[in-house]
Write a protein that binds this DNA or RNA. Structure first.
Length: 570
RNA sequence: CGGGGUUUAGCGCAGUUUGGUAGCGCACAUGGUUUGGGACCAUGGGGCCGGGGGUUCAAGUCCCUCAACCCCGACCA
């Protein structure tokens, strides 16, 4: 490709809207342009890299024996009604009506569609196992799109679904996908980690996420260096720390704590450390209210709460509901006489003579004892793991990191096959539900994640595997005949050898060409300059210091070798 | 959904306090000088100042209203 004919709208200045590295660089390098919040157009350079990510995914899915299909993004409401998700998705689903006033949506995910498809086509155990996948556009009306294509409302997802005879078959299909994912992310040049994830109210026997370590990640990963334990904080199991609490034997006492609404204020007011308090939080789980207790220095993990209660939705109770239940202003809730179930984190079991709210505005209780002063419905692990916490596997120290979720693999079991009546006839002639798994990769997010991990102050540093072009040939001065001719020769030779080369034939100053080449992140640069008449060029690898002088032929040879090595499948 | 901020040329911004017919840098076009790290000089084109309504002789500026976009938070009592 000749740069003179390529739409590569690089920007010197950073658009004000971009906060994170990948978003800034994608805009500056002219890979994408924004159309609306969370909706982006891909320019030629961005599209080439995006397609390469898709192609790597396809190769590995095909290698794992999965079949590629393509489902419509525009779907009738009926598709989501049997599973109940037409309602569950709520405002996150883009909905529309056709001219006959029939309900449609833009598909946010395709479990139902694949299930239905297989139901129509598969009848016998002889047709299983089967794994289908597609690379398609998904639509989710995110409450807050952000970070460019990292969290957008329209995005490309590779979603795969496995259909097996039994749990053992599912384990095998799952393992194949797990391995395919490892290969995919490795080929994309990503440093990633695999974490245990919450399998949610869906039940299912397991779920893992592929996380790219990055400060801008929206997920938190709990990791133990000592034993390798690694889990999403939503899932990470917490065990009580070793703090000792002595019962002081005193009776419960109500004390005046005016204008004290938070744990921090209470700590100052009473001069007692945070961990001596028990926080009482009122939650609304579906239509039921419950009280949840955690130590004052801990946070509640809502996912764990949701799983414990088997609730569809869990949210903090509105202030008005809190007032009605506790008969006090928000900030003075305690576990006594609430008339609702009280769930306590395991750590509460070991506590004595602690402080709680008094369910009376302006008052707290001190010297509180569980069992004597109030009853707990059930103890459970309900808190959030934190940096420095205790590893649930080996007891050593947990560290937390931020991660970008680029892939998620999930053992669904029979959730959808039962809901949609997807069965097959087994060898005994019985009709039994198919065992399913589902597996997703965020394609655009992968692209952004790669940039997060591969850039410097000058721009993107693409891994060869997904660089939009491999080699940038730069004649320093296109008006110099010798330079121009040699550059053309190198460019054409590279093309003939299957190398994706570009030639910067624009009548620009060399600085502009160098800057653009670096910003866009082309892995190799061959500069044809002063020594063109001696057949000497400069060979530079993006991201490395300095350059080498080589004869034109040696540079071509080196480039071909470097690129072939870089795109070699693992 | 709550809070904050922004909206003026393709991009980055000033101008709003104190109303008087819109400006800077980059980018773009033309000419010239340049040609190894985002050149320089000259000239030029480009704006319903987010939309609507109002006040006023006069509104980018004041008032009302709607919208889009960005950030933070999403209730930890």
């Amino acid at each position: 490709m000749r740069l003179s004919g390529l739409l590569m709208p690089t920007l010197r200045e950073v658009p004000a809207e971009a906060e994170i590295t990948s978003h800034r660089l994608m805009l500056r390098a002219g890979l994408i342009r924004k159309l609306a919040a969370g909706i982006y157009s891909y320019m030629p350079m961005g599209l080439r890299s995006l397609r390469k990510v898709e192609d790597i995914i396809r190769e590995e899915m095909d290698r794992a024996g999965a079949n590629e299909v393509l489902m419509s993004a525009l779907l009738p409401a009926e598709a989501y009604q049997p599973s109940g998700r037409w309602d569950v998705f709520g405002p996150e689903m883009f909905r529309l009506r056709d001219r006959h006033d029939r309900d449609f949506c833009l598909g946010p995910t395709h479990e139902e569609i694949f299930t239905e498809t297989v139901k129509n086509e598969v009848k016998s155990y002889k047709q299983l196992p089967l794994t289908l996948y597609q690379v398609g556009t998904k639509y989710r009306d995110e409450r807050r799109p952000r970070f460019g294509v990292m969290r957008s409302r329209e995005f490309i997802m590779k979603d795969a679904y496995s259909f097996d005879l039994d749990e053992k078959g599912l384990d095998e299909s799952y393992k194949k996908m797990y391995e395919a994912y490892c290969r995919i992310f490795t080929r994309l040049g990503l440093k990633f980690t695999i974490v245990d994830a919450d399998s949610g109210a869906m039940g299912g026997s397991g779920s893992q996420e592929f996380m790219v370590l990055s400060e801008v990640g929206e997920d938190i990963i709990a990791h133990c260096e000592a034993c390798g334990y690694c889990a999403n904080e939503e899932k990470a199991e917490c065990i009580p720390d070793g703090k000792k609490f002595e019962a002081n034997g005193k009776e419960i006492e109500k004390i005046l704590t005016p204008d004290v609404h938070t744990i921090a204020q209470l700590t100052d007011f009473l001069g007692v450390p945070e961990y001596m308090f028990v926080k009482t939080i009122i939650y609304k789980a579906d239509d039921k209210f419950v009280a949840v207790l955690v130590r004052g220095d801990r946070e509640i993990n809502e996912v764990k709460l949701q799983n414990l209660l088997g609730a569809g939705e869990v949210e903090l109770a509105a202030p008005a509901d809190v007032r009605a239940i506790t008969k006090a202003e928000v900030g003075f809730a305690g576990p006594m006489n609430l008339g609702i179930e009280v769930y306590a984190d395991n750590e509460i079991k070991n506590m004595h003579s602690f402080v709680t709210g008094a369910n009376e505005t302006g008052y707290h209780f001190v010297n509180v004892e569980t069992g004597r002063d109030f009853e707990v419905t059930k103890y459970a692990d309900l808190r959030q793991i934190t940096n420095g916490d205790i590893c649930p596997k080996c007891g050593k120290e947990i560290n937390t990191f931020n991660g970008i979720e680029v892939g998620h693999i999930f053992k669904l079991g029979t959730k959808y096959s039962k809901a949609l009546d997807l069965t097959f006839i087994n060898e005994a002639g019985e009709s039994v539900p198919v065992i399913m798994g589902c597996y997703g990769i965020g394609v655009n997010r992968c692209l952004a994640a790669v940039i997060e991990q591969h850039s410097d102050e000058n721009g993107i540093i693409w891994p060869v595997s997904i660089a939009p072009y491999h080699v940038s040939v730069i004649p320093v001065n296109v008006n110099n005949q010798a330079q121009k001719e040699l550059a053309e020769k190198i460019y054409n030779t590279l093309l003939e050898n299957g190398i994706e080369a570009i030639i910067d034939d624009r009548d620009e100053r060399p600085g502009v060409k160098f800057k653009d080449s670096e910003l866009v992140g082309i892995p190799l640069r061959i500069t044809v300059g002063k020594k063109a008449e001696e057949n000497i060029v400069e060979y530079k690898i993006r991201g490395s210091e300095g350059f080498e002088e080589k004869t034109a032929d040696d540079a071509i040879k080196a480039a071909i070798e470097y690129i072939k090595e870089g795109i070699k499948s693992i």
